[in-house]
């Protein structure tokens, strides 16, 4: 076998060898950043009984429609509100609230009424730069009426290494944006 033959063969063998490979088995996808559930816990000032309302979409985006429990509160009361975020698609369910708390400098929970007469919400928790986090706060209801309550989890990560969170809703993007029906009755 001539030298040229040998060289050609070595070249070809090299290509074939480098080209061969091993394959793994397919696996289901796993989203590790999923939030399926928003849970609102209202405790009227001076009492210890909590009312809980949830917004749930256990199979993630699309598929089965979300289930939403309507909120009913009493008029002209002051409530302590605790907001929780969960991933209930996993067993056991993962509580995402602590994760948000650990990154409080780039998260903001905003609770907004459909009409300003429905309620006011004031966050009582603060992040390291003294901006509100909004996971816990005080909600003061107005007079008897119906409307909606919107909960937004704003993700406001630094841009170019500069923090952008400024206590307002504007910077960043929505991680959660859900709306509950709300009824206020005496």
């Amino acid at each position: 076998m001539s030298l040229v033959h040998t060289r050609l063969l070595v070249l070809l063998a090299l290509v074939v060898m480098l080209g061969s490979c091993k394959k793994e088995a397919p696996a289901p996808e796993d989203e590790n950043e999923l939030i399926t559930t928003v849970r609102l816990k209202f405790t009227e000032n001076g009492t210890t009984t909590a009312q809980t309302f949830t917004w749930k979409d256990l199979d993630g985006d699309g598929g089965t429609v979300p289930t939403i429990s309507p909120i009913s509160l009493r008029t002209s009361r002051t409530y302590k509100l605790e907001v929780e975020f969960l991933d209930e698609s996993k067993t056991p369910a993962e509580n995402k609230t602590s994760e948000i708390l650990s990154e409080a400098d780039e998260h903001l929970v905003v609770v907004t009424p459909s009409a300003s007469s429905l309620f006011t919400y004031t966050a009582t928790d603060k992040d390291s730069r003294n901006f509100p986090i909004g996971l816990t706060g005080t909600l003061v209801t107005g007079s008897a009426s119906t409307g909606t309550l919107k909960v937004q989890l704003r993700h406001q990560p630094p841009v170019n290494g500069q923090p952008v969170k400024n206590g307002t809703v504007t910077p960043g993007s929505d991680d959660v944006n859900v709306t509950f029906p709300l009824t206020l009755a005496p």
């Binding site: 170019n160 504007t170 993007s173 991680d175």
Partner: peptide
Amino acid sequence: IGSTSDLLKVIQNGEPFIKTGFTRN
């Protein structure tokens, strides 16, 4: 953007909410 409302807000604003300087990072 996280939601449709985020998108509508930035379109309405006409420019990005956050502007920065130059960086290679």
